[in-house]
Every structure is written in structure tokens, then in C-alpha cells.
Design a protein around this nucleic acid. Structure first.
Length: 133
DNA sequence: GCCAACGTTGGC
DNA sequence: GCCAACGTTGGC
């Protein structure tokens, strides 16, 4: 089992809407590194859901419901996955808090700001969930 | 709204 | 294949 984090701008697709709709088609990714990560996702893998631009916090946990398939929004070679919400964090974990934690200095979210789909180590995932519970 | 970081494009 | 120019993301 692998652990992941995806970003979404709440003004485009928020956690609240995700919960209401009970599913998200994660399409539209046009970045090779992110595509590689999408293709590495397996059904059942846990995924942290991060609000970028506004909020700037990990707000919930999702799960991979369908592994990578042809992105329906293009004929080109890009991938999409389906996600379903698992549970909201009791306390969203702000980026500023994660930046203070030594164990999280190497996560892509902090190191490489622009990546929208990224892997996490199990330890990192569990630590963020703990910070949010 | 600004701008740094970084990915992509295209001329050579 | 290099690298300058350009576009986009996303924190501040």
C-alpha cells in the first residue's frame, strides 16, 4: 500500500463538494511527474486531500476507488483516477504547521510547491493524520 | 496582486 | 541537445 497527497483549489473543487458528491474524477492533470504518481496509485491507497491557494491545509483523507485510466478530458496520453472521501480531519493541518515539523521537511508539498499529485512515506502520512486528529 | 519556482516550448 | 523565453502554479 502506498500513500499519497493531492492538491485542489477549494474554489475549483473543495473537500465539502467532494464529500457531498461522494466521488471525484481526478482528471485534467497535465504534468509528467504527477501523471507518473497517478499511475502508481492502487485501489484502496489512502490519499490526503490538501486545499491549495485558499485554506492551505490538509483537510481530509480520501481513497483510490479506481486506478489510472485514460483521462476523459483529452485524447492525449494523460491519466485520471477516481477518488472517494474517507473521512475529514477533525483539525485541518495547515501548511505552516507542517513546515515546523522536522520529519516533514522532505515532503514534496514543502520541497516542490508546484507538484499536484505526490507520494508520501507511511510515516509522513501517519504523522499528518495524527496532527489532524 | 506579486513573484519565485519550475515545467514546457521552440529556435538555433 | 542546449537554453532562453514563456506560461503556470501556488505561497505570501
Amino acid at each position: 500500500m502506498k500513500y499519497w497527497l493531492v492538491k485542489s483549489e477549494p474554489s475549483v473543487f473543495s473537500w465539502e463538494r467532494f464529500v457531498k458528491e461522494k466521488k471525484a474524477v481526478w482528471d485534467g492533470v497535465r504534468n509528467y511527474a504527477a501523471r507518473l504518481h497517478l499511475r502508481g496509485m492502487k485501489k484502496g491507497d489512502p490519499v490526503l486531500f490538501y486545499h491549495s491557494n485558499e485554506g492551505l491545509a490538509v483537510v481530509g483523507i480520501a481513497e483510490v476507488a479506481r486506478e489510472a485510466y485514460q483521462d476523459p478530458t483529452t485524447k492525449e496520453d494523460w491519466s485520471a483516477v477516481d477518488l472517494i472521501p474517507s473521512k475529514a480531519l477533525n483539525n485541518p493541518v495547515p501548511l505552516t504547521e507542517m513546515k515546523k515539523v522536522k520529519e516533514l521537511q522532505n515532503i514534496y508539498l514543502i520541497r516542490q510547491g508546484r507538484l499536484s499529485v505526490m507520494p508520501l512515506e507511511k510515516k509522513e502520512f501517519e504523522l499528518i493524520v495524527k496532527m489532524g486528529s
